[in-house]
Structures are given as C-alpha cells and as structure tokens.
Computed example of a mutant assay.
Amino acid sequence: METTARDFNQRSSQILAAAARGETITVTKNGIPVARVVPMGDDDVPPYPTDPMGAIQLPDLGLPDLTDEEIEDALKGMGS
C-alpha cells in the first residue's frame, strides 16, 4: 500500500490498523517515498522494558538534606 503524507496525517488510525493486519505502507511526499510503516512481529519487541520502571535508587553521597526553601535560596540569582 502507498499513501501520501497528507493522507497519512488525516487517516493515521486506519493506516496503522492496516499495518497491524500485516500490511506494509509506504508514505510519500511530493511523489517521493519518505517513510515506511511496517507490521511489528514478536521478534521486534525489545527483550527489556523501555518505559519508566518506578522509583530510582540514588547512592548516598553524604550531602546534607535541604528543605525546598534552602534550595530556592541557594539558587537565587542563578540563571535567568
């Protein structure tokens, strides 16, 4: 299947549904192919998470705990 960039913009849901059904779609701009939308298989999914994984554990650097007010005071005049 081939579609124009404008058509892709207006009908992206239908075009993505076609890809989900296994169809490959070439997107053109001014008659020149600029992108290809291809169906994803099980092998295309990365074996590791790509989304946020919850709380981050930061190492203890031995720095003092500062209140928001102390941080704001320290940053006054810095930047714009």
Rank of each mutant, 00 (worst) to 15 (best):
Met1Tyr: 09
Met1Gln: 12
Met1Gly: 14
Glu2Trp: 02
Glu2Val: 07
Glu2Ala: 08
Thr3Ser: 03
Thr4Trp: 00
Ala5Gly: 04
Arg6Phe: 11
Arg6Glu: 15
Phe8Trp: 05
Asn9Glu: 14
Asn9His: 14
Gln10Val: 15
Gln10Ala: 15
Gln10Ser: 15
Arg11Tyr: 09
Arg11His: 12
Arg11Ser: 13
Ser12Arg: 09
Ser12Tyr: 07
Ser13Cys: 05
Gln14Arg: 09
Ile15Lys: 00
Ala17Arg: 11
Ala18Met: 14
Ala18Cys: 10
Ala18Gly: 03
Ala20Leu: 09
Ala20Pro: 00
Arg21Thr: 12
Gly22Asn: 07
Gly22Val: 09
Thr24Gly: 03
Thr24Asn: 07
Thr24Gln: 12
Thr24Arg: 14
Ile25Ser: 00
Ile25Val: 15
Thr26Tyr: 01
Thr26Ala: 11
Thr26Cys: 05
Thr26Asp: 11
Val27Cys: 01
Thr28Asn: 01
Thr28Trp: 00
Lys29His: 10
Lys29Met: 11
Asn30Thr: 08
Asn30Pro: 00
Gly31Gln: 02
Pro33Asn: 04
Pro33Asp: 02
Pro33Leu: 06
Pro33Gly: 03
Pro33Thr: 03
Pro33Phe: 02
Val34Asn: 04
Val34Leu: 06
Val34Cys: 05
Val34Gly: 04
Val34Asp: 06
Arg36Asn: 10
Arg36Cys: 08
Val37Arg: 00
Val37Ala: 00
Val37Lys: 01
Met40Asn: 05
Met40Tyr: 04
Met40Val: 11
Met40Phe: 03
Met40His: 06
Met40Gln: 10
Gly41Trp: 07
Gly41Pro: 07
Asp42Tyr: 00
Asp42Thr: 08
Asp43Thr: 13
Asp44Trp: 08
Asp44Cys: 13
Pro46Met: 07
Pro46Tyr: 07
Pro46Gln: 10
Pro47His: 07
Tyr48Ser: 14
Tyr48Gln: 14
Pro49His: 11
Pro49Ser: 14
Thr50Tyr: 06
Pro52Arg: 12
Pro52Thr: 11
Gly54Val: 02
Gly54Cys: 03
Ala55Gly: 06
Ala55Gln: 12
Ala55Arg: 12
Ile56His: 06
Ile56Lys: 09
Ile56Met: 13
Ile56Thr: 14
Leu58Ile: 06
Pro59Phe: 07
Asp60Ile: 11
Gly62Phe: 02
Gly62Val: 04
Gly62Asn: 03
Leu63Met: 12
Leu63Gly: 05
Pro64Tyr: 04
Asp65Phe: 10
Asp65Thr: 15
Asp65Val: 15
Leu66Glu: 10
Thr67Gly: 09
Thr67Asn: 06
Glu70Asn: 02
Glu70Gln: 13
Glu72Leu: 11
Glu72Gln: 09
Glu72Val: 12
Asp73Cys: 02
Asp73Ser: 08
Asp73Glu: 13
Ala74Glu: 13
Leu75Asp: 03
Leu75Ser: 06
Leu75His: 04
Lys76Ala: 13
Gly77Ala: 10
Gly77Ile: 07
Gly77Cys: 09
Met78Ala: 09
Gly79Trp: 02
Gly79Ala: 08
Ser80Gln: 03
Ser80Gly: 07
Ser80His: 01
